[in-house]
Every structure is written in C-alpha cells, then in structure tokens.
Design a protein around this nucleic acid. Structure first.
Length: 342
DNA sequence: GAGGGTCAAGTCCGT
DNA sequence: ACGGACTTGACCCTC
C-alpha cells in the first residue's frame, strides 16, 4: 500500500440520479447492500425473520465482493474503497445477535468475508470501515460505551474474517471512528484495554467539526493514528491548514510508517449556490453573509471547487484521499481525472 | 412507479 | 423541546 490513491465510500453508482436512491431494475443494486430493521423483523415469525437475515447476508457479502472486483477494474491509483457497515444488519442488536452466532451462519459468513479480503489484497485494493454515529467509545454513559465497544468489535469481526488486524494497520486497513463522547481523548484511553488486539491494531481517529479537533486526536497519537479530515478542520477553525504544518507532520508520524489516509469533503454546492468554483470558500466571508456553520458541514454531490481540489492535491503525495460525497465513485473518479489530467 | 411513513443506537447546533 | 446534520438512506406499504 505504497502508491497514492483516491477512493470513495460505501456505495457504487452508475448514474448521478442514483444519488436519490436506486430503482428496482438498476444493475448497481448488485454492488450495494440491502438492509432491514428490528421493527420489521419483530413483526415476522422467527423463521421468516431468520430467512430474511440469511438472504441479506448472502446478498451483502456477494455485493461487497462484486464491489471490490469492480474497484479492481479501476486505475491502480483509484483502488481504495470504504466498505459499508451494514453488511450484517442487527448484528449487535440484543434480540438478533444470536443469529450470527449460529454455527451454520457463522461458517458461511467467515467463508464469504475471507473471499472479500483475499480479493481485495489480490487486486491491491485498500479497504476500510467507518462505524456510524452510534459508536461513541468516549461517552460518559457506561451503557453507551459498552454498546459502542460491541459495535466496534462487530467491525473488527468483519476485518478479522477478511484477514486484517494481525499487525498495525496491515495493508493500510483501518476502522475509523470519531471521539464523539463527552469524555474525550481520556475516554478513549479508558476503554483501550477492553478492545481486542485486532481492534487496537486497526482503529484510527478522525478530527471533528464541533468538539474534538486535530489537537485532540493528536493527543492520542501514541496509541492511535489520526485520520485528517480537511473539511472538518475547516468547519471547526476556518483554516485551510498547510500540508507543511507541524500538525500535519504529526498526523503522518501517528501512522508509524503506514501511508496515511485523509478524508476530503467540501460544503454542498446546494448551500453555496453561485459560488465561484475557482475560489476556495472563505469561512469568515460566508458567516458574514449569513451562512450557518451547521449548514456548511453538509457534503457536496461532487468535488465542485477546483481551488479546494488543488489544495487537497498538495496532500496527495503523503496521503491517500478518501472522498466523502453524495456522488460516491462518480465524484472520486471525476476528481481523479482532474488531478491527473486523465 | 411514486410517495409517504418508519426505522436500534449518540451528539451537537440552531431555533 | 425538537428538527436536522453527521454517518451510509433503504424499505415497506398503499395507491
């Protein structure tokens, strides 16, 4: 995992209209996950619920494998993808977690996940996970912490089945979370020993827009690498931090020789209607003209601002760039073409 | 097919 | 207090 990459997150789109959801006949459904809800499962007979979980498990593992194969057809510098967290719905939900412990089910998913990991390594694809907003390891509520550890270990189970986690961020793999909880960095340290070895090998922490910024994530650099999110940093501080800044050097160091990943998103084009796309959005100016910080957080469809693209390009030498945008691979491919003049 | 209601879970900001 | 944003909107049901 040494050369530079630009990747995307969680879903494969064939057309921009699919940003608003897929239609029943869309081919891309074969590359994307299905899901279900606890409420729906609860309304069914147990056999029906179990059958649905089995069907979704088969669909999602197949879809993830197909997604990885598809990413493998891209330029080597585009072979990076974040995998969706909802591979196995309700895995950590107390009523249904038993299902995934059934021997037949466990054996099937272990085999399916192994194939996904082997294929990703064979095709030289950098993969990762990003647990959602409910994974709050540093919460001040011990029940939430316990649930969050379970949620994190679910992602670790997936990674382990896929063949990752035996050493520090092997193959560049990461399971990235926010600090989120009110206990902050100390809360992360407090639960460190409750995480499995593989979890400790794979966790990364991302700077946030509101509570915990780069200084906070870097305070954990002795145990956890920082995923630098330039949009979060901009929303929090208004700064386009320089790639040569000492903090960025410390981010790189926190990865201990593994090539770092950064996140790239930009304010939604629907919020900044009419904004000059060759000029970087300026926080002070935007706030003075009545924009709200919270609205500026929202992600764009595409990486529409060439000036910010050029700014991010300066990081590419040292960072793989994970694009977070509504248009998914369509946006990351367009950015890739822009930065490589392809 | 379109449209509206529903969905396991945390935290913050703005009103 | 509550909706919306983040995260990753999708699915069920009715018409």
């Amino acid at each position: 995992m040494t050369h530079k990459r630009i990747g995307f997150c969680c879903k494969w789109l064939d057309f921009p209209r699919q940003m608003d959801g897929f239609k029943p006949k869309d081919e891309a459904l074969k590359l994307n996950n299905r899901t279900t809800t606890v409420a729906w499962l609860n309304r069914q007979e147990r056999a029906v619920a179990e059958q649905r979980l089995w069907d979704i498990m088969e669909h999602n593992t197949n879809a993830t494998l197909e997604l990885v194969k598809r990413v493998g057809t891209l330029d080597p510098r585009q072979r990076m993808v974040r995998l969706s967290s909802d591979m196995f719905p309700v895995y950590t939900e107390p009523t249904y977690s038993y299902y995934y412990q059934l021997p037949d089910v466990k054996e099937a998913i272990a085999k399916k996940c192994a194939a996904i990991g082997e294929t990703a390594r064979m095709l030289d694809i950098r993969v990762s996970f990003h647990p959602g907003q409910f994974c709050v390891l540093a919460s001040d509520n011990e029940t939430i912490v316990a649930n969050s550890i379970r949620e994190f270990e679910y992602h670790t189970d997936l990674a382990r089945w896929m063949g990752y986690g035996n050493s520090f961020h092997d193959h560049g793999f990461k399971i990235n979370v926010h600090i989120s909880g009110r206990k902050g960095p100390d809360g992360i340290r407090a639960i460190w020993n409750q995480l499995s070895t593989e979890a400790r090998n794979l966790v990364t922490i991302e700077n946030e827009e509101n509570s915990y910024g780069l200084d906070d994530t870097l305070s954990l650099a002795d145990i956890i690498p920082t995923v630098f999110d330039c949009h979060h940093h901009w929303v929090k501080t208004g700064e386009y931090i320089e790639p040569t800044d000492d903090k960025i050097k410390r981010v790189i160091d926190s990865w201990r020789g593994v090539r770092p990943t950064m996140h790239y998103s930009v304010s939604s084009e629907s919020i900044l209607v009419g904004h000059d796309n060759s000029v970087r959005p300026a926080m002070t100016t935007l706030l003075e003209s009545g924009h709200k910080k919270q609205k500026l957080r929202a992600h764009s469809d595409f990486m529409w601002n060439t000036a910010v693209n050029q700014y991010v390009a300066e990081f590419w030498e040292n960072f793989d760039i994970q694009v977070e945008s509504k248009a998914k691979n369509l946006a990351s491919t367009k950015l890739f073409q822009e930065l490589t003049n392809a």
